[in-house]
Simulated scan of single mutants.
Amino acid sequence: MKILLASALFLAVPMAAHAACSPTDFTVQDFKISAASGRLSLKGQLVNHCAEAAAAQIAIEAKDASGKVLVSKKGWPAGTANIAPGQSVDFDLGRLFRYSSDMQSFTAGVADVRTW
């Protein structure tokens, strides 16, 4: 019985560490879009408002004039590094998209959070 309880604790600890920060603990600020010579620039800052160091995945959607999603991509701006509480990282995820004249607007938000 003690072995079963101990193994259950070892399984629960990593899950608890993973759940400490959530997507709502991060914000995308100063999101700016520009296109030049067929290349997109989708720049902004990812800010950690969580009490712990963690990383967040950003989801960006390109939409047409009616609001229909044309392309959706995700990226980890800090790679496999955690962002300290209160700190931010700059990102430009334009390289993930192939420009199309149908793309009229873009939205960016936090899709997932984890600690590395």
Rank of each mutant, 00 (worst) to 15 (best):
M1K: 10
K2H: 11
K2Q: 10
L4T: 15
L5N: 12
A8R: 14
V13N: 01
V13F: 14
V13P: 02
P14T: 04
M15I: 07
M15Y: 12
H18K: 15
S22N: 07
P23N: 09
P23R: 10
T24Y: 08
F26S: 03
T27Y: 02
T27C: 03
T27V: 12
V28M: 05
V28A: 06
V28S: 06
Q29K: 14
D30M: 07
I33G: 01
I33W: 05
A35W: 07
A36P: 01
S37C: 02
R39S: 11
L40H: 02
L40Y: 05
K43I: 01
G44V: 08
G44P: 05
V47I: 01
H49Q: 08
E52S: 11
A53P: 09
A53M: 09
A55P: 06
A55L: 11
A56C: 06
Q57K: 13
I58E: 14
E61W: 04
A62F: 08
K63C: 00
A65S: 09
A65Y: 04
S66G: 03
V69S: 10
V69C: 10
L70W: 02
V71D: 01
S72M: 00
K74L: 10
W76E: 03
A81W: 15
I83T: 14
A84T: 11
G86A: 09
G86F: 13
S88L: 05
G94R: 00
G94K: 01
G94W: 00
R95S: 05
L96F: 12
D102K: 14
D102G: 06
Q104E: 04
T107I: 12
A111T: 13
A111V: 12
D112W: 03
D112H: 08
R114N: 11
